[in-house]
Each structure stands twice: as C-alpha cells, then as structure tokens.
Design a protein around this nucleic acid. Structure first.
Lengths: 336, 336
DNA sequence: TTGAAAGCGGTACCAC
DNA sequence: GTGGTACCGCTTTCAA
C-alpha cells in the first residue's frame, strides 16, 4: 500500500546516469543507443512511469480536453460525445465530462475555471448565452469551441446547425403531407433552442400560407413526460391534425398523449420530432424526425479544437451543419 | 492572446506580502482578516486563478476520477455515468471518460496508465477479465472499483448484479402471465452477459417445469435491427407466445418483428426486455423490462471509491444489486 | 553526448 | 502571524 512510486531519480540511479539523460532517452532526444538501452532497462527494473502531473507543470499542457453540456443523457449530446472522444484519443487527449444540468451558473463556472488550466481546451454546448458567458468567452485561458448559436460579435470558434430551418422543414413536410392545423409542442421558451424552433415554426406556417394560431403552441421541458402532458393540454383545447415536437422526447410524449386520446398516428394526427435519435427509429410508429447532425457537429468541433491546439492561427471559424428530414411512419409524406 | 496568466508571485507583489501569506490567505489558514482582505483585493486586481496542475503536483491529488467502459452509447453505462458524475462533483472531483470500444488491450492500458497518476481513482467496467487485468488489479497505483463479475481471489472493491437471476425473473413472470412457449432472443453466445442470460433462461424454464426447446433460442447482437431479424427467424420456424429479449434493444426489435408478422403485443405474444432503459418506458406498447440497477451500481461504485479516497481502510468490499422487474404493457402479468 | 541546475506554480515547514 | 525556502517530478538550457 505504501510503496512510493519511483521517480526519474530512481531510474537515474539504477542506470547510473543523470536524470537529464533519463528524460532525454525516454523522449527520444538521445542518439546514443547504448544510453537508451541502459535507461529502458532501468525503467523496467524499478517499474518507472512518468508522472503526468509533473510533465504537465513543466510542459504547460495537460493532454486533456473538456466537453461541457447540459446532460449527457440527452441523445444529441450523447451523439456528440461518441464522436468527439475517439478523435481526441487519436491525438492523445483525454476527455473530461462536465454535465451542467442546465444550470447557467454552473456553465459559467466551467468557463471561468478554465483559468485553472486543468485542460488544454473546451467544447461547450451552452443552453443560454448570458453576458457573463460573453465576458468569459472574450479571452478564454484555453481554446474554446462553442456548439450552438452565438450572438454576433462573439469571436469564438463555433459550429452550429440551423434548428430554425429544421423546424420550418418539419412544418413544410407536414403541410405537404396534408396537415393544416399544425401544432407545436416546444421546449422552454426562454432557451435558445426553444426560440429558434418557435421562429422556424412560424416561418414554416408563413411559407405554407397557414394562419398563426397561438392556441396551437404549447411548452414543455425537453422530456417525454413533459411532452405528454403538454400535448394533452393542447388536445384538450384545440383541434389539430399534426404535432411538431421540439425534440424526439417531446414528440414521443405527444404520441403517447394521442394514443390515450384515442387518436391514431399518422391517420388522425401526424407527428414529427427533432434530433433524429434512436428513439425516433425505435418508437411505434417510427417517428419522422429532423436531424440536426449532432454527430457531425461533435466531430467538427473536435477537429476545430484540435487544429487550434496544433497552433492553427487565424480568426474565429464558423461551420454550419444543415438540418435534414428523415421520413418515417409517423407522417404520410414522402422524403423531402 | 499572449498575456501570461499571473502566478502567486504577482499576487504577492501586488499585495506587498509573501507568497506564503497569499497561499495561506487563499486556503483559509490565516486568522488575520486584514491580511486576507489585502490578498483577496490583490487577487482580483491581477486576475489570479491558482494553477490546478501546480497544486496537484504539490498535494499529490488531481481531483479527477476516471470511468472506463466499453461504449457510453450503451444505455446501461450511460445510466451509470449520470449517477456517478453528480456524486463526484459533490466531493469536488472531475470526471474523466474512457470509452474502450470493447478493446481489451485498451482497457488494460487504462489500468496500467493509472501509474501516471493523472487521476485519483478509477471505476472500471471490464468486458472480460484477463490475466493482465488481474495482474494490473493486484496493486493499482490508485483506488479502483470494478463494476461487473470478478473471479474469486481478485482483491478489489466490486459492485455487481445478477443478470442470470434477472433472466430467470423474466421467464417466471412470463409463465405467471400465462405464457408456455417462451422464446429467448439472446445476445452473442460468447459474451459474459449472453451466457448469464442463457443460463438464467434455462433456470427459469426449469423452475416453471417447462421443457427446454432449443428451437426457441435465437442470437443477435445487442441491437434493434439484429433483434428484429433474429425474432423474424424465430417466428418463421416456431410457434411462441412470449419472447424474452436479452436487452431492451433486442426486445424492441422483436416487437417490430411481431408487428410485421401481424401478431399483437401482448395479446398474441408477450415480450420482456432487460436493462429497463428509457426505450422500455417510451416504446409502444411500453415494455416490461428487468432492471439490472445500472444507476444504483454506478452510485454504489462512486460511493465506494469516494470512501477509499477519504482514506477508508479495510478489505475489498463487495456489493450486489439485485435485478428487479418493471411490469408494463407488453406483458399481461402483475408486478412481481 | 552528458550532467548540473534553473525553473514550472504552488504548499508547508521552519525560523523569526 | 509572517516571510524565507525546500520540494513536488519533470523538461530543458547551458557548460563542460
């Protein structure tokens, strides 16, 4: 239990050389093969493994990258992590996970804690952008890539999608499939995603020459139960022939509510979700859903960050992943 | 871009005191309130944030804990992470994620890299236990908790479940609900989980005095499509009134196959899944599923690890989380 | 090529 | 109570 791990000094002693030589031999800075051999032998003999912390202090690099998002349980973020992690590994970085639980304060702390230099970079998925976000983003201690919408003028590497356009696609798809009273079960109105989807919904109605009817709009947390309850309220007060759920969870909740109300999907009411998660593919009926390219966004973010860490100079980059509709059986339309 | 972060020396200079005083003031080791005030002011003035790496080197603690598993996309591991992370945070630890992608070699590297001391502890979910695992587990550089089965004699903190018993519960539940020709769509036969579930299935049949009929057993990867195909093969050749899927994905695939075959769930065929993931709750009909307590196991593992890090002495602990059946609409039985 | 020594940025012991 | 200083374990410059 107590045996202290050997340090570079033990290796040096065992090999009968200086610690400088050990360091060089281990980092390939030596051309004398005999030296290298002696050191390697000594390393094995004493069971030496370099301390990552000491190396970090000296090199000013941690070999770690953080990914901060609301909740890893959210399928969209999960898809990102699964794409990000392998890319980081390839470049020798470890992944640190921060789930902020939709706590803005917490999110800001992550941003501000960057000054502690415990990671070399950060991929951040903010749920909201506050003044403090912007302030912290102005001169981050390490490179940061933000996934999501960003106010103009914030000079940070950024990858986004266009969920507004995605929402519009959903509405247009429903219209093309014959729906005329298209409801929206949105996420919380005070979130960026919520606002974008609402805007896209209105845009879609306008594009289809459909009137705006605010009784057709409900709000819910991005969860199944909340979606079910919100949809139930909606069905109580309005006659609808289609529901667009702001994410797959909400949409599936809506399908449950419809079933309870004795309405069939898609015959009575068509349903479209958003994020195109595994839930959409496995639900019954399989859910038509708008993909926001989470995997691609995660991959792009990782690549952009790694490029910065490699020293890539230049102004803040911005990449946009377009939304795409995956048509399944919860709607009667054909692929866009 | 270039402004070097201020160190403790800058603070000391700005406050006109020694670095020792700064350190003390910041760590609450000082009783002189005036001193503290001056230091705090200086900290704000120069914008000082302590270096986590330097602190780690000195204190020999990183404030980080790693969680290593096959694939975070697996709902069971996801559930664990969601439970582990908040507990670690509470104690001030950051979470490092290692997805090994079912690569034993990679898993062992994680174990061996512990000697680098970049984390204070590890929660490991091994897919297999090899000799090298055991060797590395014999004297880990930091405390380790293993989630999963462990050969006797391996002296490591351990939390496990009993999926064999879980499979048996599923069969007994189906029997009690009136099923007599109970099929198993298992995972791959050469995996530990696959073998345990098969054994439990047979055990359940025996307990119910049901004959063993190998034509009622199919194999599939732990995925929806594979489950659907395997169930289709099964339905092609055998007459069944119940299907136990070795995980929720397989079970949902089976429900899709049943639907395609015009069989209704649960009236014609009852279905039980395993893992009790969100898919079970959101599918239609909602899927009866055997929970293997992933959340609890994650939570227990975190607690055990934190206890060790707090210095708790003693022999290796072992906790077992019993399986539990969650009855939903895909079966006609009542709660166990 | 190799070794001595100066830090990297903190903490904590030891005198004063 | 406060300041000087050794040291955590490594990398890297500088002389020899």
């Amino acid at each position: 239990m107590a045996a202290p791990r050997p340090t570079i000094h033990e290796v040096a002693r065992a090999a009968g050389v200086s610690i400088s030589s050990v360091s060089r031999a281990l980092n390939g800075q030596t051309s004398n093969p005999e030296m290298v051999a002696r050191v390697k032998a000594a390393v094995d003999e004493v069971g030496y493994v370099p301390s990552a912390v000491a190396q970090s202090l000296k090199t000013q690099q941690t070999g770690q990258i953080a990914f901060a998002m609301e909740d890893i349980g959210n399928a969209a973020y999960l898809a990102m992590v699964r794409e990000i992690q392998p890319r980081l590994r390839e470049d020798g970085y470890r992944l640190l996970l921060h789930a902020t639980g939709a706590d803005v304060q917490d999110e800001i702390e992550v941003l501000e804690s960057l000054a502690q230099k415990y990671v070399d970079g950060l991929v951040l998925c903010p749920i909201r952008i506050t003044e403090r976000h912007i302030a912290a983003l102005r001169a981050p201690a390490v490179p940061v890539v933000v996934i999501g919408q960003l106010p103009a003028g914030v000079d940070v590497d950024n990858v986004r999608t266009d969920s507004r356009l995605g929402a519009r696609l959903a509405v247009e798809h429903l219209y093309a499939a014959g729906a005329r009273r298209i409801a929206l079960v949105n996420g919380p109105a005070d979130t960026v995603p919520g606002q974008a989807r609402h805007a896209g919904y209105l845009e879609g109605l306008a594009a289809c020459d459909l009137p705006v009817d605010e009784t057709l709009v409900e709000f819910a947390d991005f969860q199944v139960d909340a979606g079910r309850e919100a949809a139930a309220r909606l069905l109580d007060r309005a006659d609808v022939d289609a529901i667009f759920g702001a994410n797959d969870l909400i949409a599936i909740g809506a399908m449950h509510a419809l079933r309870s109300a004795g309405r069939s999907v898609p015959d009575d009411v068509q349903v479209v979700g958003m994020d195109d998660t595994i839930l959409a593919a496995t639900s019954f009926p399989p859910l038509t859903s708008v993909s926001l390219g989470s995997r691609e966004r995660g991959g792009l973010a990782a690549d952009m960050l790694l490029a910065r860490l490699r020293g890539e100079p230049g102004a803040a980059r911005r990449e946009t992943v377009p939304p795409a509709l995956t048509v399944r059986e919860s709607t009667r339309g054909v692929a866009a």
